[in-house]
Write a protein that binds this DNA or RNA. Structure first.
Lengths: 253, 253
DNA sequence: TAGCTTGTTCTGAAAGAGTGAACGATCGTT
DNA sequence: AACGATCGTTCACTCTTTCAGAACAAGCTA
């Protein structure tokens, strides 16, 4: 996507304001005006306009993200064919493993969490539906990239790099390509505390009829919650099994 | 919320554009320009700006709602304490009944679907997470209103009226108040094709410690799918049971 | 009470959103 | 194959309208 030739600055500013509110978990007019480069009267006008349509909620001089965004967000998700195909199986996997199960898709070279199901024993993380993450530092992202053409992976790395998130993140290009090759063989990926310290995940790609990935599913759990045996023997099979069911649903129905 | 004294028109226009795209299930520049009162070059500028941040997706000269809205929408939902408390139980109810289960909250006098779980046999409806509906024409809305003070109900009716959605919608004010009184006694509400022809629902309120409703759960099914016996005997108990579990989770944890 | 915040209102002035025409591309039709 | 229609995109000018800044009310803290 080329840069807009004639961007509408007001729209950018509004989106910025909304994103700041999300980041701060609710904020007041002055607080927002400090972060975005416009005066507080202007911020006030934006917020009133957004509040009118319930895109923000005002609670005691604090503004919060409004539920009107849910309509658009849920709609956007429902539009993706993979969501419908995957949801039931993701729920089931969460139920069986008791862990946190995630579904991720790619958008413009980054990963976006599309759906999340929490088992009874699920770890609490910073991930939420709609959040975007670097693809290279998660099992989900690696599983997804492994089933994309090499040139596409190169493009994505060119654009976003391989920034380190923890000491375990793979930051070397060749090492990363080797990792992807291995994932292609196993049809599952493992993340050893590569994005978050103390967390490891197993992920499997969900591919279309041409074996190109359209999404990935993962189970995430704290390093010390599951012993290695179960982590390496049991989880990969379960995750691949779920991915398989989703693929069938996605490709043949 | 008072009318904004100094609305930011550009923001209104952008939101209008986005809402049109949603309504039309994707649209082109000219198509949008026809509906919103600005030229197509202006619409084009808006869309490019939104696309830059993934708030809209461009696919072959058609623009669609982007996944960036999911981040905000899911975030807004996660902020509501009722969501966390209810989600697991709503899933369970859907699993047990095989039907469509909905969770609704009130916002500015209208109902907003907060969460939805589909059982194996769930009916396909026009409802989706984030959608807003009139409160008076659904079992969910009636259950919710029944546990609000009378003056609050009056205010809401003053603002939104009791418009007929089908031939069965209650459109008379007194009749509606009587219906609410009955719901207060039973602690569950029934919707007899009042919003959609051929659909009936059973809903129960979820109340706080002062017995004021904060949300409602419902099971929805086609009129001819379930015989009257099961509909009237089995469902109310199940739905009230689920509501009860959610209340405990909401109020005491 | 004074002194700091906060959100809100208002008007002028500078910014920029929108108009409308023109261009190039891609249709389906003649 | 050439046409006409319709699409998305670009551009420069103009007039709309956003924004800055000051002033005010309300709520704190000291």
């Amino acid at each position: 996507m080329a840069e807009p030739k004639h961007p509408v600055r007001t729209v950018d500013r509004t989106l910025e304001i909304v994103e700041i509110i999300q980041e701060l978990d609710g904020a007041g007019v002055s607080e927002i005006a400090d972060r975005v480069d416009i005066g507080k009267s202007a911020v006030h006008n934006h917020l009133q306009t957004l509040a009118e349509r319930d895109y923000v909620d005002k609670v005691d001089d604090e503004y919060h993200i409004g539920l009107s965004f849910l309509s658009l967000g849920a709609y956007a998700r429902n539009q993706t064919p993979i969501h419908d195909a995957a949801r039931a199986e993701v729920d089931k996997l969460a139920d069986e493993t008791d862990e946190l199960v995630n579904l991720l898709v790619e958008q413009n070279g980054k990963g976006v969490y599309l759906y999340q199901a929490k088992g009874d024993n699920a770890v609490e993380l910073d991930t939420y539906e709609g959040k975007d993450v670097h693809l290279h530092s998660t099992a989900l992202g690696k599983a997804l990239l492994a089933f994309r053409p090499t040139e596409e992976v190169d493009e994505i790395i060119d654009e976003h790099g391989l920034p380190a998130q923890t000491a375990h993140t793979i930051t070397d290009r060749e090492e990363f390509q080797a990792e992807l090759a291995e994932i292609r063989e196993n049809r599952y990926a493992v993340d050893h505390e590569e994005r978050i310290h103390g967390l490891r995940c197993v992920a499997a790609p969900i591919t279309d009829n041409e074996d190109r990935s359209v999404a990935a599913v993962s189970v995430a759990c704290p390093v010390h919650q599951l012993d290695d045996e179960r982590f390496y023997d049991e989880l990969p099979d379960r995750v691949r099994g779920a991915a398989n069911v989703i693929e069938l649903e996605y490709n043949y129905s």
